[in-house]
Nucleic acid binder design. Structure first.
Lengths: 251, 251
DNA sequence: CGCTTAATATCGTTT
DNA sequence: AAACGATGTTAAGCG
């Protein structure tokens, strides 16, 4: 950590890091003013300042999850020297909002290009979903009774097989992403193999217009499910005494 | 920035910083898994990790304003050594949620107690506007008399409650941005709870056409206010010699 | 572009 | 502890 440089030198460091679009982290004594949708003033104190490669801007205090000041990108960021401080001005490009920070001294400084190509996945497998539905068939429909899950057929594995409130055999197909024509074709294969008088419901967070048209034309049904809702259910339920809850407690 | 230490040494540094509740900043190659209200996995990449003095936890990627993973305090944070990595486990105390981070190498490390006693002021929030109106009820309407501000009702907090020149009870709702349907719905909730014979005025710098239609249909009223004008008022009236005003003058 | 809805929303206050 | 309302909410989807 650099902490022996003059303010002038540090200002030059920041200017250089900004111009080459590096990721910047500063731990410093500062005060900050925000003017935009509202106004705010943050008195002097030691904080973490982050400037990201896309000009995202954050000031974090030593406690609390949320930043005390921030500016979503894109921003125009400029540096100047004040009386006994470095002045950082962060202006939003698309809106009349700005944060002005006066930095009086540095405890830490870092700047570099960061290499991050890893992707981020939010998930809940179709298997996990069918397990949740086994415990909560009412999420499919009131009065629904599940006969089997992960049922192997010639046409493929049927996620959920059950009987509805009126006693009709029903196939349920789960898609954790937006359902397309492929999903509908898959359900159609199951239905054709199962024979006449079988209902089929496609469960997914969303469906494309074309897929929905095809589905209606073939007398199939669509029901929207929220993945978040489902994951909440498992989180709260398995709270009792399962491998999941033990895991969550770190045992 | 420390970047020549072994993983083992760095783990020890983190452990020590955690036990003395210091503010920790790391720039490192890591992957992260979240299990809780939802589930997610973040593949390997270089990121900023922040652990605050109250155990607030954040992982930031090189771009985007928002953290990719986080845990609100209080957390229980533990460190262990993996195959070729440091494993950081962040478990929320009040909820079954955890983030597990595997750190493979460090580009930067900082830890220290930060001293931040400066206070944070917001100006021209709806609360502050209602305070200005309390002092200047004529800005609402000639002859308007304010009974109370920030009045808590079941339906929500009524910004201003007053009596107009003709003696009618009047609800005033303030929106500092353009008022939309939500704002109108909010006022409607108040009016319905308040009963018959109550006026309601929506004060804001602007209103969407649909919201205005909805408002007229329900017999509510709209009055335009200028935030700039209001902020001028506080600029003149507010504490003239605070650190804020000195700052604004650039001292 | 504007409107609607979801979010690991967060955060404070009241019941 | 749970529920509700406000937020400099933010962010994504859709018409």
């Amino acid at each position: 950590m650099i902490n022996t440089l003059s303010l002038q030198d540090t200002a030059e460091l920041i200017r250089e890091a900004l111009s080459s679009r590096r990721f910047i982290v500063m731990i410093c004594m500062c005060e900050a003013q925000y003017i935009g949708r509202a106004r705010s003033f943050l008195e002097k104190g030691e904080r973490l300042i982050v400037i990201k490669e896309d000009t995202s801007f954050l000031i974090h205090r030593p406690t609390e999850l949320e930043p005390v000041n921030w500016q979503p990108p894109p921003n125009h960021i400029s540096i100047s020297l004040g009386e006994n401080c470095v002045i950082l001005t962060v202006r939003r490009v698309r809106k009349p909002e700005r944060v002005v920070v006066k930095i009086y001294s540095f405890k830490g400084f870092f700047s570099d290009k960061l290499s991050d190509n890893g992707s981020f996945h939010m998930h809940l497998s179709e298997k996990e979903i069918s397990e949740i539905l086994r415990k909560h068939p009412e999420l499919i429909e009131d009065g629904f009774r599940i006969v089997s899950t992960e049922f192997r057929e010639k046409a493929g594995i049927i996620d959920v097989l059950g009987v509805d409130a009126k006693g009709r055999r029903t196939i349920v197909e789960i898609k954790k992403d937006k359902a397309g024509k492929d999903a509908v074709k898959q359900v159609l294969r199951y239905v054709r193999e199962a024979g006449t008088g079988v209902r089929a419901i496609l469960l997914s967070p969303n469906i494309t217009p074309e897929a929905e048209k095809m589905l209606r034309k073939n007398g199939l049904e669509f029901k929207k499910i929220s993945m978040l809702e489902l994951s909440r259910i498992i989180t709260y339920e398995e709270h009792s005494e399962s491998s999941m809850s033990r895991f969550l407690r770190g045992e």
